[in-house]
C-alpha cells in the first residue's frame, strides 16, 4: 500500500467516526434540552465539544487526503480534541469510581454501576486514525 492510499484510508475511517461523533454530540445537546431522540447522555457542552472536534476533522479531511499541510492542521487538532475528550471521560470515570467508594465508607454499598460514555469508545477508535500525523513530514505546503 502506498502512502497516499494509507492516509486516504485513515482519513475516511476518521471521517466516518466523526460523522458518528457529530450525531452523538447533537444527541447529547438534544437530550440536555429535554428532547431525547435516542438514548444519549444529557450534556450540552460535552455535545458541543464533540461537534467542534468532529467538524475540524471533516473540515480538514479533503486536503489531508491530498497530503496538504492546510488540511493536516485541522485534522490533527480535531483528533487531539477527540482524544482529549476521551481521556477526560476516562478520568471522570475513574474519579467517579473513587468517589463512589469514599462515600460508601461506613455504608453497605453495591458494586459501582459502570456506565461507559460513547466518548470513551470513540477515544480508542480514534487512536487508529493518527497515521497522517505520523507521516506529516511527507506533506506539502500547497497544491501543485
Amino acid at each position: 500500500m502506498n502512502l497516499k492510499f494509507k492516509i486516504g484510508l485513515s482519513v475516511v475511517y476518521a471521517s466516518i467516526l466523526s460523522v458518528i461523533a457529530l450525531c452523538i454530540g447533537l444527541g447529547e445537546i438534544i437530550s440536555f434540552i429535554g428532547l431525547p431522540i435516542f438514548p444519549s447522555p444529557a450534556d450540552m457542552i460535552g455535545g458541543f465539544s464533540l461537534i467542534v472536534g468532529a467538524s475540524l476533522i471533516l473540515y480538514g479531511a479533503r486536503d489531508t487526503i491530498k497530503l496538504l499541510y492546510s488540511g493536516l492542521s485541522f485534522y490533527i487538532v480535531g483528533i487531539a480534541i477527540m482524544l482529549g475528550i476521551g481521556l477526560l471521560h476516562i478520568t471522570i470515570l475513574l474519579a467517579d469510581i473513587l468517589d463512589y467508594y469514599i462515600l460508601c465508607i461506613g455504608e453497605v454499598c453495591q458494586a459501582y454501576p459502570l456506565q461507559i460514555r460513547p466518548e470513551i469508545s470513540l477515544f480508542f477508535l480514534y487512536l487508529f486514525s493518527i497515521y497522517p500525523f505520523l507521516s506529516r513530514f511527507k506533506f506539502r505546503r500547497e497544491e501543485e
Binding site: V52, S73, R136
Partner: peptide, 21 residues
C-alpha cells in the same frame, strides 16, 4: 500547524471554549 487552526477566524473561539470546558 496548530497555530493555523487555533488562531482560525471561525474555529479559534469554539476551540477555546472546548479547552476551557
Amino acid at each position: 500547524m496548530i497555530d493555523h487552526v487555533i488562531a482560525h477566524k471561525i474555529f479559534g473561539l469554539p476551540i477555546f471554549l472546548v479547552v476551557m470546558y
